[in-house]
Design a protein around this nucleic acid. Sequence first.
DNA 1: TTTTTAAACCTCGGAGTCGATGTATATTGA
DNA 2: TCAATATACATCGACTCCGAGGTTTAAAAA
Lengths: 184, 184
Amino acid sequence: MAILGFLRDFPLHGYDLKNRVASLAGHVRPVADGTLYPTIKKLEDAQCLTRRTAPGSVAAPRHMLEITQAGTDQLRRWLRDPEPGFITDDNKWYVLLAFLHHLENPREQALVLARRREFLDQPAQLFFDANGTPIPPEQLDSPFRKGLMQIHRSTNLTEIEWLDRQIADLNKRAGYAVRQRGGD
Amino acid sequence: MAILGFLRDFPLHGYDLKNRVASLAGHVRPVADGTLYPTIKKLEDAQCLTRRTAPGSVAAPRHMLEITQAGTDQLRRWLRDPEPGFITDDNKWYVLLAFLHHLENPREQALVLARRREFLDQPAQLFFDANGTPIPPEQLDSPFRKGLMQIHRSTNLTEIEWLDRQIADLNKRAGYAVRQRGGD
DNA sequence: TTTTTAAACCTCGGAGTCGATGTATATTGA
DNA sequence: TCAATATACATCGACTCCGAGGTTTAAAAA
């Protein structure tokens, strides 16, 4: 998703792509050569991108990569209907968010944000005693577990506020768009 | 780490363990049977835990798992000197935090928190233009990318505040401990 | 001139994970 | 009484990913 997402902005060669992916998901979970290049080849085989060799500006020749229509379609499908992990795993979610603007339709964008919003709504029960009874945060012995739950709660609230503002905004824009096309 | 961490609290059988791991890292990134049970076996082979069969309280017999001294040592090594990913990847970091109290020595605990603190300090440059120049958040076109960076900044600050309070607290306690043992 | 360095790309083996599938046991209920 | 269900454990093949190693090219340094 990150490869196609970046290429949708402008053509890049593999090495540049690698650095951009590394900066995005990256200092968190860097991407290895052995992952990136085979994935590029896979996307090329699937006609999602084209490659043409260009002289390297500094050293060895580059393979300039360009996204195709099929690639754009694939990217949009991934964004429109993301796998569960992209909603629940923070790392993946942030990658998705970084490219959600390529999904162009504000109503569809709002739907994706709503899925995340729904996920954040369910209360987190992280720890249980020997009997399997959930332990409320204030009864936890470990200050680290207490902090963990505090931070979790606080960051969730921050994101929920932003999501709600954003969803409202997108729906309003979708409404205008409909009215401009003749009402609904 | 989660397996040994939970067993350090009290003995558990695999199925229970599975649910606890799933609750912790879990609704984020659930753990499959095909991952859990081979890992338990690996830890058993490494003498990190022992297993004795007990009658199942409900149905099939359980394998009650107990951590050994070697297992406790291993857990402490993982906690004391975590691999980079455990500092930089939120998911892994939260797992580490959930068991950091097993590291008992407040000075060692503070050192681990300090590593996380240091990581959070480096400013995040996530997006670049076609020339490779970093784009400041306010100049980003995509509202999603803007939000992404906002949320990132805000949640980082929340965690940094907590980390600083916690580190100060731990160092104070380490200081008392030293004085009680005769000064330093 | 030769070596070193850095850019840019590629491959392969091994480790880890998942998902599907299968087994055994005790309770429930039809 | 017999099937269905939930508990509890295990295995295997497919897939993904990483890391180590290697190649080519051009510029800089020796």
